[in-house]
Every structure is written in C-alpha cells, then in structure tokens.
C-alpha cells in the first residue's frame, strides 16, 4: 500500500529543484542551486560546514521556505511552505536526533500521529496489537531489520535500530518517495554502519530516492549514485560516482579546482 508506483508516467525526474535561493537577512545560505533526482537514486550532498547543505534540504522538507526558485515533483510544480506539505508529497527526513519518543516502543513511534484505532462501545481505542504486528512487518520487509522484542522502549535500542524505527515511520507515515538523511552514519559503530548502508540500498531497490548529507566520503561512495559538492551556498560540482574519485570530491570541497568565475 505504501509502495511507490514503479512506473513514472512522464519521463520527468522524480524531483527537480531549479535555481533555489535562500537567504537569512543578508546571508546567502543557498544561492541558485539546482538538482534533480530519480526514483531509486541516491544523491549525496557533501561540503564543508556552512556550505548550505542543511539549509538546502530544509527547504525541501519545509523547515525553511525558499526565497527563489522552483521545486517540481514528477514534473509538477509543488509548493512546500511547511513540514506537513513536504510529507504529503512523499518527502521525509531522518535527522540525526531521529525525532523518536524514547519511552514509546517501536510500534508507538512508527505509528505516532497515525495510530491504528478500533472502536468499542462508541469509544476510540488504540489497536496496539495490530500496530505491533504491522510495525514488525514494515521493519522486517521494508527496512530489513528484526527487533528481538518489538515492545521494548526505543530508548533501549541501539543507534542503528533506532534509525531503522525512524525510517520505518517515514515509510509508513507517508507514501514515501524521497528520504532525506542527515549524517545517517555519524553516530554509529562499524557493524551498525554496515547495516544502515545495507538498509539504504534496500530502500533504493524499492524505488525510494535518497538524499544523503554526509561527511564520510567512504560511505558516500558506497551508497550514492551522484555526489553534489556545495561550497558557500553554491553547488560547485555534481560528480558521477562511477567516474569520480574521492580526491576529485575533496578538491571541490576545499576549492582546489578551477570553478566558474564568481
């Protein structure tokens, strides 16, 4: 039911962002950035701190409203002025803090705000049993992990498991088309990182597009199809993973290559 439709009718990319600009007062956080993204594709955004990566994805997820530019989903222009609009068109973000309610279990978090309910004696009750089964199913089939105990509070889960729960929520809460991940591997150990990268591959195979912000070029090269380098609010290069090297990317990040005249 939440599978993205495999066939996009038009040949338009899933997501297009045209000439996006966003400034805070006099500071140009994002200047004239364009990108596109196809279903099942992973785009990494890299760059130094303050390069505008976070601002750019926050424009996409509705945290910031864009000042100039246009966003199109499947060829249609869309307006994203708040987080809910962003969710409604199938864009979800998993930030570093994950936004989980620690004291709730996986099911409680996956269904947060979209609880399954049943009516009894004219009153509405939560259907905890069905939510637990469904959450376990989504986690296993779509995210690819199995929790030992689905009822344990997420507070007691590992970093990777918590991330999986956050992603399961993103998948379930919306007809997920694009998942934005901010530093998904930053807080994880080696084993957990491997699981998360596998999970990301898994999502791509289901046709979900990923936008990943990461400082770790090893991980970027393992997951991304294309790598966009940002510097001072501008997209200075977009490289193809298959042809680029880490040195190329690094060079763009630190401005060691010739770019267009400013």
């Amino acid at each position: 039911m939440n599978q993205p439709s495999p066939s996009v009718r038009s040949d338009a990319p899933l997501l297009e962002m045209h000439s996006i600009s966003k400034h805070f007062g006099g500071v140009m956080a994002v200047a004239d950035v364009s990108l596109h993204l196809n279903a099942g594709e992973a785009l990494a955004i890299v760059g130094d701190n303050g390069a505008g990566k976070s601002t750019l994805i926050k424009v996409l997820t509705g945290v910031h409203e864009l000042d100039e530019g246009e966003i199109r989903m499947e060829g249609r222009p869309v307006s994203i002025t708040n987080k809910r609009q962003s969710r409604q068109i199938g864009i979800e973000a998993v930030y570093q803090d994950l936004g989980l309610v620690d004291s709730l279990d996986a099911a409680g978090n996956v269904f947060l705000g979209h609880e399954l309910k049943h009516r009894f004696l004219g009153l509405t009750f939560l259907d905890n049993a069905r939510m637990a089964t469904e959450a376990a199913r989504v986690l296993k089939e779509q995210v690819g992990i199995e929790l030992e105990d689905i009822h344990v509070a997420t507070h007691h889960l590992s970093g990777g498991q918590r991330q999986a729960v956050a992603i399961a929520r993103a998948i379930y809460a919306t007809d997920l088309k694009i998942l934005v991940m901010d530093e998904p591997t930053a807080a994880l150990g080696a084993e957990e990182t491997r699981n998360t990268l596998m999970l990301m591959q898994n999502l791509k195979q289901q046709g979900i597009a990923l936008i990943v912000i990461s400082h770790n070029l090893d991980h970027v090269f393992r997951i991304a199809d294309r790598i966009m380098v940002m510097r001072s609010g501008r997209a200075v290069a977009t490289l193809d993973r298959s042809t680029a090297t880490k040195q190329d990317v690094l060079a763009h990040i630190v401005d060691a290559v010739e770019t267009e005249a400013a």
Partner: peptide, 8 residues
C-alpha cells in the same frame, strides 16, 4: 518536536 512533526 516529534509530536508536532507527526501532526499531533
């Protein structure tokens, strides 16, 4: 924050 984000 999470509660707000999920539309509660």
């Amino acid at each position: 924050e999470a509660a707000v984000l999920t539309g509660i």
